[in-house]
Nucleic acid binder design. Structure first.
Lengths: 339, 339
DNA sequence: TTGAAAGCGTTACCAA
DNA sequence: TTGGTAACGCTTTCAA
């Protein structure tokens, strides 16, 4: 077990005090000459700071905690992966945790993560109202993705312009002549920044279309559950009451709908047009293609990471950034003629 | 900023020395009565050990480092997410890093991760021959996924029974009458545990079929690149030389092939049957379905995590575990008749 | 069974 | 500009 080279070793080698070496290495002080010598010696000795010791002494760790609601959801999984990559690119470690659907688990994880002394938090909150956010945001920069943390004014956020997104979808479907639209949304209550019900109602009214809300459990690995939930909504015995389009607020749901349609022998898009609300990869390959609202993941990741690191490094104030959607049309068709 | 409650605080409150409290909390020693009192007091005070201080003092951190080759690859992304979830379920933190395709980056990250004092490593090695694995594996338990670390005999591994996987695929395709099969594989050299070329040759010989190797760059976000690479292999002007099936060693490649086929106006599976070699979700939804070899991700994750934690906690020896494949047939059809 | 004291490797404050 | 020295909060060895 090769013993670790410590600051003390470098100090001894260069004939200075550990403190001086520490400062020199960080470029915080020291004459140019000293800094040069110290760096040189550290280099040849192969010295590397010990991040753990540093974290204990300084309270910061060059680590960012990423806490997401559930990586079972493909969008979040890909988001987490991208955030981690972006952070690494900035020289930070990501420590990722997954609340896996439980708000209580979320709270517990938060406490554990805080103890790791991360320099900042990137969270996709399950419960944006939870009281713990406030205390957290006061201690360390926090950027929430998807919902603002209403109780924690000092936290930053990246939110989605849902109103525009809904408008794009309903404009599209209505222009194709769809009169009855099923909206598939998660069971958990909607939040101020994702007021699904309200937006659906508004769009329905604006276009004079009929909507059916289908609430499904969060992305489950079990497609059957999903199918069961969807089947009843899609198979009204009276064909004139059956929805001709499904608008899915999660792409996982969209895939669930496609599966359900398969089992029910509904042609997509012949009998049913399907629209997703995220932009998972391979939307172009699903069946005849899946029309989606795209939010530009790079933009989301960048808005979150750049904002957080600016706050961490330069103490920049946190803010709310809004992501604007685009509609990518694939595979939706006009509503089938009434028979 | 509410001051942190330390071991000292608990010790003061209960009237014992910090050392005693430390031991009692961990259940390492102390009379039953002492342990009870200490725990009780810690509880009411809301004491939580500081993981950073503990890591510095003890050298262990209840953290596991997960290093993967590239989370751009969907399979690895999902693997990383599942590993993280499994680790959390066992009360460990995951610190995930992504070498993002570069073996040199891999080496660099490894050094950084080691400094975080993880209790173990879970790696999907880019370069299983790299010398650094040996030193690492001697210091801390390492489990490699996908390839054994030949230079690090003390490391454990989870490998895939590729021979069986290839056999399943070729048996399937040959039985459907396919005579010319394109095999899409990554450009990076094959490894002892993934001897793609050798297995292809063996299967080709066994079934008397013709194979074409198509080497593509690793999972890229740019579908065009992929299409360009594939196009030439799939569009021999002489139809009797054109492959009737494509066997893709990565599902990302399979999706790439499906995209390429779309652009080339090749019907799938009419003109071209496509088989994937991983089991990404939604394989059932891609076009008319994608036949895949499934490796049971739960099994992979479990084999890796349980083995690693047994070594960490109980000093159990590490071993090589092999995952056996299953063929999931979807959407492949008989080879088109020769014209 | 309990406790005192010496680390663990840095950083930060305050003198020199 | 530099250096002592005291944290940081815990574990561990060695004595009591």
């Amino acid at each position: 077990m090769p013993k670790r080279i410590t600051l003390q070793d470098v100090a001894d080698a260069v004939g200075l005090a550990p403190a001086t070496v520490s400062y020199a290495l960080r470029g915080e002080r020291g004459s140019d000459e000293t800094v040069r010598r110290v760096r040189q010696t550290a280099e040849t000795l192969g010295y590397q700071v010990d991040p753990v010791a540093r974290a204990l002494a300084s309270g910061r760790s060059r680590t960012v905690a990423v806490l997401c609601g559930s990586t079972r959801d493909l969008w979040q999984q890909s988001l987490a992966a991208r955030l981690a990559r972006a952070l690494m690119a900035e020289g930070r470690h990501a420590i990722v945790a997954d609340a896996d659907g439980g708000p209580d688990r979320e709270e517990e994880l938060l406490a554990m993560l805080r103890d790791q002394r991360p320099d900042g938090f990137l969270v996709a909150p399950l419960d944006p109202f939870a009281p713990q956010w406030e205390a957290l945001a006061r201690q360390v920069p926090v950027v929430a993705i998807g919902d603002r943390l209403s109780r924690a004014p000092s936290a930053g956020s990246v939110v989605f312009d849902n109103a525009s997104g809904f408008r794009l979808v309903f404009d599209h479907l209505a222009s194709l002549g769809h009169q009855r639209i099923a909206v598939v949304l998660p069971q958990r209550p909607s939040t101020p920044d994702r007021p699904a019900e309200r937006l659906v109602a508004a769009e329905a009214k604006r276009h004079g279309v009929v909507t059916t809300l289908v609430r499904t459990p969060p992305a489950t690995s079990d497609p059957d559950t999903m199918t069961d939930h969807l089947a009843s909504a899609l198979t009204d015995p009276d064909a004139r009451k059956r929805p001709t389009a499904a608008f899915c607020l999660t792409d996982s749901f969209a895939f669930g709908v496609l599966r359900a349609a398969n089992r029910l022998r509904l042609a997509v898009p012949g009998d049913l047009s399907v629209v997703g609300f995220e932009d998972v990869e391979f939307a172009d390959l699903a069946g005849h293609g899946l029309t989606t609202v795209s939010w530009g993941r790079e933009a989301v990741v960048d808005a979150a990471v750049s904002q957080l690191l600016a706050a961490v490094d330069a103490d920049a104030p946190l803010e709310t950034r809004t992501i604007t959607p685009t509609l990518v049309v694939r595979g939706t068709t006009a509503a089938p003629a009434e028979s």
